[in-house]
Amino acid sequence: MKELIEKLSSKYELQEVVYQRDNLVFAAISKENAIEAVTYLRDYEGYTHLVMMSCVDWIEDGKYQLLYLLHNPKLKNDIGIKVYIDRENPEMVSAHHLWKSVWTYQREMHESFGIVFPGSPRLEENFVVEGWDETPFMRRDFDTHEYAEKTYFPRGNRKTNDPAEYMRKKLYPNQPVTAKQRKDDK
């Protein structure tokens, strides 16, 4: 894995290289170079299997983090290419020409995060929800509990026996109480 990262860093500027396991490494690449790097890995380094694409919302930094997780069937190891894109105007170069499965991930990300992939097929189609017109639901600033209470007629007298609360009071009475919990109790 070390050699691959060295080879890759000679071509592109890598950040946040983390060796998570012997066979798994994560590295961040700038938005401009990402698709090029992924294509290079696929064509020259044998990372031919796209395991998954994912997206993480880092709302504090105002960034979305995209992940391209590639697997090498010969060396049997994985590399995760991370790309940070702007949260306000999320747009990323589409990779649907590289694998046939990519457009599905991009369609899902478009629906759940609002990221635009220009040129990706069937991007505007519904994936899991129909006619959704609120904030894209996987964003951190969308409060699902509030939305559910507002919309779906919660049944009254629902006794929520919060296990955390129960355990704190009954099972661990001697546990030091944090300031926030003290505030909640009041």
Binding site: Q20, M52, Q175
Partner: peptide, 23 residues
């Protein structure tokens, strides 16, 4: 650790297994 105060440091990982349908 106590599950109530279980905090995990910043990090990320990918765990996989072979299910009946595949990876």
């Amino acid at each position: 650790p106590n599950v109530l105060n279980w905090k995990i440091p910043k990090g990320e990982t990918y765990v996989r297994l072979e299910s009946g349908r595949g990876e």
